[in-house]
Amino acid sequence: MTGLTAPLASVGRSTLQFLASIGRVSLYVVQILRHMVTPPFYPEELLKAVLRIGYFSLPVVGLTALFTGAALALQIFAGGSRFNAEAVVPSIVAIGMVRELGPVLVGLMIAGRVGASVAAEIGTMKVTEQIDALLTLSTHPMKYLVVPRVLAAVLTVPILVAIGDSIGILGGYLVGVTTLGFNAAAYLQNTVDFLEQWDVLSGLIKGGVFGFVVATMGCYHGMSSARGAQGVGRATINAVVSSSALILASNYLLTSIFFSA
């Protein structure tokens, strides 16, 4: 009997643990929102976080977007040529970048770069008692460490998405004009003509949501880090994996809300 019920018990246990972690993260989000609107505020920490999360992510975001836009142009051209639709390259590259690839790729890059570093930094602070030290110095870690990082991510990731979109379109343009034989002016005209304001705006909103997800997961896993180097390592992995999965899931959800007829 035990042999039969053991797998079921294991599934049950995992399900309960999963549900419990959803509950913990939800409560954590409520706490973040509460601390976001109640003083004291730490503008200096916010500024530092904006620099670290936003400004220093520019190179990785730029490179990713440039090559993705370029590859997208090649793919669309190759696919479109099967039914004589090569002319759609500029518009598809533009729409694909601003609606989907821009926000998702920037989100995933930020998850790898920022989510990991936030989780490792806060996790190390926890295991070296720096979080306890903050508390004894009358400073709430949620207000001092978490809120500035989350706010900075929500504010800067949409800007990174906008920059990533532009560079991605530029990547497509460069390939289109230099390799695929498009006329430069016609390529740009096509890009502008077919792009709508909502295409861009929806991508930026996605960026804000992904920024919130990445910073929240980084802080949550850092704060929940177990002792020792292994604990911090696990927290970092959990932060990257969970924020990447949540970015992809929330991207589907947001797309279905924004674009379902």
């Binding site: 602070m125 070296t128 008692e129 720096q130 306890d132 030290a133 903050l134």
Partner: peptide, 8 residues
């Protein structure tokens, strides 16, 4: 604190 717990 035991390990100093200085903010690095």
């Amino acid at each position: 604190f035991q390990g100093g717990a200085l903010f690095d």
